[in-house]
Simulated scan of single mutants.
Amino acid sequence: MEIKPSIIFTKRDPEAICPKRGTPYAAGLDLSSIEERTIAPRSQEMISTGLSVMIPHGYYGRVAPRSGLSVKHGIETMAGVVDSDYRGTLFVILRNHSDDPFVVHKGDRIAQLICEQCLVVEPTLISSDEFDKVPTERGEKGFGSTGV
Score class of each variant (00 low, 15 high):
Thr23Pro: 02
Thr23Ala: 15
Thr23Val: 12
Thr23Met: 11
Ala26Lys: 02
Ala27Cys: 11
Gly28Ile: 12
Leu29Ile: 10
Leu29Ser: 06
Leu29Val: 08
Asp30Val: 08
Asp30Ala: 10
Ser32Arg: 14
Ser32Leu: 04
Ser32Asn: 14
Ser33Glu: 07
Ile34Pro: 01
Glu35Ser: 12
Glu35Asp: 12
Glu36Cys: 03
Glu36Ala: 09
Glu36Leu: 01
Ile39Lys: 00
Ala40Val: 06
Pro41Asn: 08
Pro41Leu: 12
Pro41Tyr: 09
Arg42Ala: 13
Ser43Ala: 14
Ser43Asp: 13
Gln44Arg: 14
Gln44His: 12
Glu45Cys: 11
Met46Ser: 15
Ile47Lys: 06
Ser48Phe: 04
Ser48Lys: 09
Ser48Cys: 07
Thr49Gly: 05
Thr49Arg: 02
Thr49Ala: 07
Gly50Ser: 03
Gly50Phe: 10
Leu51Glu: 02
Leu51Cys: 05
Leu51Phe: 04
Ser52Lys: 08
Ser52Arg: 07
Val53Asp: 01
Met54His: 08
Met54Asn: 08
Met54Tyr: 04
Ile55Leu: 12
Ile55Val: 15
Pro56Gly: 05
Pro56Phe: 04
His57Trp: 06
His57Gln: 14
His57Phe: 13
Gly58Tyr: 11
Gly58Arg: 02
Gly58Gln: 11
Tyr59Asp: 08
Gly61Cys: 11
Arg62Thr: 14
Ala64Gln: 14
Pro65Thr: 09
Pro65Met: 12
Pro65Gln: 10
Arg66Ser: 06
Ser67Gly: 09
Leu69Ala: 02
Leu69Asp: 00
Leu69Glu: 00
Val71Tyr: 10
Gly74Cys: 10
Gly74Arg: 02
Gly74Ser: 10
Ile75Ala: 03
Ile75Glu: 05
Glu76Val: 04
Thr77Ala: 11
Thr77His: 02
Met78Val: 14
Met78Asn: 11
Met78Lys: 15
Ala79Ile: 03
Ala79Pro: 01
Gly80Leu: 12
Val81Lys: 01
Asp83Ala: 12
Ser84Trp: 11
Ser84Phe: 13
Asp85Arg: 14
Asp85Cys: 09
Tyr86Ser: 02
Tyr86Phe: 15
Arg87Lys: 15
Arg87Tyr: 08
Arg87Gly: 13
Thr89Ser: 05
Thr89Cys: 10
Thr89Leu: 04
Leu90His: 00
Leu90Gln: 00
Phe91Gly: 05
Phe91Arg: 00
Phe91Ala: 00
Val92Trp: 06
Val92Met: 11
Leu94Lys: 02
Leu94Gly: 00
Leu94Thr: 01
Leu94Tyr: 01
Leu94Asn: 01
Arg95His: 15
Arg95Asn: 12
Arg95Phe: 15
Arg95Cys: 11
Asn96Pro: 05
Asn96Cys: 06
His97Trp: 14
His97Met: 14
Ser98Tyr: 07
Asp99Lys: 13
Asp99Ser: 15
Asp100Glu: 14
Asp100Thr: 13
Asp100Pro: 00
Val103Glu: 11
Val103Ser: 07
Lys106Met: 05
Lys106Pro: 01
Lys106Tyr: 03
Gly107Phe: 05
Asp108Met: 09
Arg109Ser: 01
Arg109Met: 00
Ile110Trp: 03
Ile110His: 00
Ile110Asn: 01
Ala111Pro: 04
Ala111Lys: 03
Gln112Asp: 05
Gln112Ala: 08
